[in-house]
Computed example of a mutant assay.
Amino acid sequence: MEKSTILVVDDDKDIRDMINIYLVNQDMNVHTAANGIEALDILENTKVDLIVLDVMMPKMDGMKACMKIREKLNVPIIILSAKIDDADKILGLTIGADDYVGKPFNPLELLARIKSQLRRYKQLNNNFKALQEEVIQIDELSINISTHEVFLKDKQIKLTPYEFKILVLLAQNRGKVFSIASIYENVWEEDYVASDRTVTVHIRRIREKIGRDYIKTVWGVGYK
Rank of each mutant, 00 (worst) to 15 (best):
N29A: 01
T198E: 05
V187D: 05
Y223N: 08
A130C: 08
I136K: 13
P104E: 13
V177M: 02
D98S: 14
D86C: 03
Y121D: 07
R119H: 11
I143K: 07
N25T: 07
F178P: 09
D139R: 13
I51A: 03
V150C: 00
V177H: 00
I183L: 04
Q172R: 14
M60Y: 02
A194F: 12
V48S: 03
A194R: 10
K3H: 09
G102T: 10
I77M: 04
S142Y: 05
M67F: 01
N20K: 15
D41G: 04
E208W: 00
R174N: 13
I145T: 05
L152E: 03
A130S: 15
L53G: 07
K68Y: 01
V8Y: 05
I21V: 12
L124I: 07
I206P: 00
G62P: 09
D139F: 02
K165Q: 12
V30N: 05
G96T: 09
D191K: 14
D85K: 14
L169W: 05
K68C: 03
G220K: 10
D41H: 10
I157L: 00
V177Y: 00
V24E: 12
V187S: 05
D86E: 11
V193Q: 14
M56R: 12
V187K: 07
S81W: 08
N106F: 08
A130R: 13
M60C: 03
E109T: 14
A34T: 08
Y192S: 02
D86M: 06
Y192P: 04
V52I: 15
N45W: 04
E163P: 07
T217Q: 04
K47C: 05
I138K: 10
V9S: 06
D88F: 11
I51E: 01
P107W: 08
M57Y: 13
V193N: 06
T46N: 13
I15H: 07
G211E: 00
T160D: 01
L93I: 02
S179K: 07
